[in-house]
Nucleic acid binder design. Structure first.
Lengths: 338, 338
DNA sequence: CGTGAGTTTGTTACCGCTATCATGAAAAAC
DNA sequence: GTTTTTCATGATAGCGGTAACAAACTCACG
């Protein structure tokens, strides 16, 4: 019934390959890691043996022996948010063909879950971290610092990163978009937000600062901690318009909400942008596809991934990056909806 | 005494905890894995020591010693496709709090990349696989079979799975949606497709079968291998309408295309569904949000993830699932766009 | 032809943990 | 009271690799 666990897994090991060729296993190991140090003929024979026996290296053993796992962790809040899939693409582009494996984790926007993930990936022996956000639990911070591993915090731009950082100011981006709306002549600008994580709050803060600087009323603000969705965008639009019918523009803390609001406007016959202007945040594909197209803050997600990976890679190769805190900026894209 | 240089990583190990408490390391190990086998007082002291020293287990060492990594691999074609983030959610829901780690890999719709991923995750010593699709390279198949690990193929429903399978027939789903359009009275139904992976081709086949069965013209079909996007949906719509202006309905192989086409209709002043009906595939959130809402084939992505994970988990616990090939079905949702 | 440097291969000792078996003491059974 | 079982803990030997050092062999050069 209960099978006795064998000590040996039955898998082909280095030793098996070595015995097959009639050499020692360290030489087989060298063929895989430092082929130039092995004579061509022997290398050839070893490679054939590997092929014939179907040998697959055991990375756990390798990592244990060398104290290097050749893997890094990329921690994001959400995988269903397209924002982060582009970050991943950037990271993957840099680490492809370097022999490094990118392990993906998602914290569901929870700092505690993030802490757990950090702990998990430390136990996997990752060689470095790329982590979204700069808000962590104290213990998470401590884990990272004590690990002495290279860490890149991305998306935001903390004043004092744990180690390195690549991102931009969401507060300033929120300010700039609001400012652009104001300059375009909109008088009564509302704000709609969902999820309201740290970054969304900063966008809101930017909106508020711009409104106050322009001596405009900053009361038309509706936020919820519920996760963002198209439907929620429609609901928020409805609520905002019910409470502040005089609004002539709404800045949403992300594109999903803005798109959902646009659909709701179409449903209600509200003409965009004539009656009501809309703006989103992130510059997802959809903002460029809807009718009218959506004004938005285009955030350089892929570039953030690329730069973060570049910094981390340098560190992994024991080189010193010229800078360790990169402001990628963003772009205010005024489109059909405003 | 010439002492060899130590290779130790400097990290806190089981041995350190054991020494701190004044016991052997195997007992510390037991506290973590089989706490009931350790006396309560000792357990308490060990736990305090672990806390105090900040011990984090090394999973690679554990996996190496026990030949069990307590991790599984989930391989999907794409992470930017929201279809798969819901599958992941289902899988994660089952494996949360089981001590199993879900390692995510994406093949970018390439069978060769998939093969590479399988090899990589085998070298990580995963205990099982959940793999999207049933089209694999010969070597990938062989790797999986030889590994003797439990494997669940998902999304499609192959006649002869490698091991287990959870999915449904995309051909039948394509047929059913087309059939529903025909029954609703549409006379000239086109098909628009992108990416055209195996599953998309099956949907096309279903459309074609329904058209032929109804003795309708199945020539109005436009597909491309380019990746799907909203913009591409607009382009395909434009091309279809240019070549077959008489079309009164279009079935797209996914929701992104359908939504993009809808936006393009709005742009061109084509009334949906009066002048042209649209239908998508997958039932993403957006289909329920646009105006009009989009008819679509709602695929049970989360459930597929749940069921696949359930089967795999049973296998990992050495239990035998009652069935190893689950047809989840799907739902034809007729909404505002048709 | 001896010598030293460079190249190629091997030996040994771990990495940090767990499987297995062993041990002594306490509890249960006879 | 003795034997058996159970419980709590420990000693030992790996798991499958790699680092560090060592040895054997090559080859150029004086």
């Amino acid at each position: 019934m209960v099978r006795r666990a064998r000590r040996s897994s039955g898998r082909v090991t280095l030793q098996d390959v070595a015995k097959y060729v009639g050499i020692s296993k360290i030489t087989v190991s060298r063929v895989l890691r430092e082929p130039h140090r092995v004579s061509p003929e022997l290398k050839e024979r070893v490679e054939q043996a590997i092929e014939r026996l179907g040998y697959i290296p055991n990375r756990q053993a390798g990592a244990l022996a060398s104290a290097r796992s050749h893997s890094i962790a990329l921690l994001v809040p959400s995988l269903s948010n397209l924002v982060f899939s582009e970050v991943l693409r950037g990271v993957a582009d840099v680490f492809d063909d370097t022999g490094y494996q990118v392990l993906l984790g998602h914290s569901s926007y929870s700092a505690f879950e993030e802490e757990r993930l950090i702990s998990t990936y430390l136990s996997y022996g990752v060689d470095g971290f790329i982590i979204s956000g700069s808000r962590h639990t104290d213990r998470a911070r401590e884990l990272l610092i004590r690990s002495q591993l290279p860490v890149v915090e991305i998306m935001e731009l903390p004043a004092k990163p744990i180690d390195m950082a690549v991102g931009f100011s969401h507060e300033q981006a929120g300010f700039d978009m609001t400012h652009a709306l104001i300059k375009a002549g909109y008088q009564r600008i509302g704000f709609g937000g969902a999820r309201m994580d740290h970054r969304a709050q900063n966008r809101l803060a930017g909106w508020r600062r711009a409104m106050i600087e322009a001596r405009m009323d900053d009361s038309a603000c509706l936020t919820t901690t519920r996760p963002s969705s198209y439907r929620l965008g429609a609901d928020i639009l409805a609520d905002l318009m019910a409470r502040w019918p005089e609004l002539d523009a709404i800045f949403f803390c992300n594109d999903d909400l803005a798109a959902g609001a646009l659909f709701e406007c179409q449903r209600r016959g509200i003409r965009v942008p004539e009656q009501l202007a809309l703006a989103g945040y992130n510059g997802l594909d959809i903002t460029d596809a809807t009718f009218p197209t959506l004004s938005t803050v285009v955030t350089p997600r892929r570039r953030i991934g690329l730069e973060a990976a570049r910094l981390l890679k340098l560190r992994l190769l024991d080189e010193t990056p010229e800078e360790t805190r990169i402001d990628t900026g963003y772009e205010i894209a005024i489109r059909g909806s405003s």
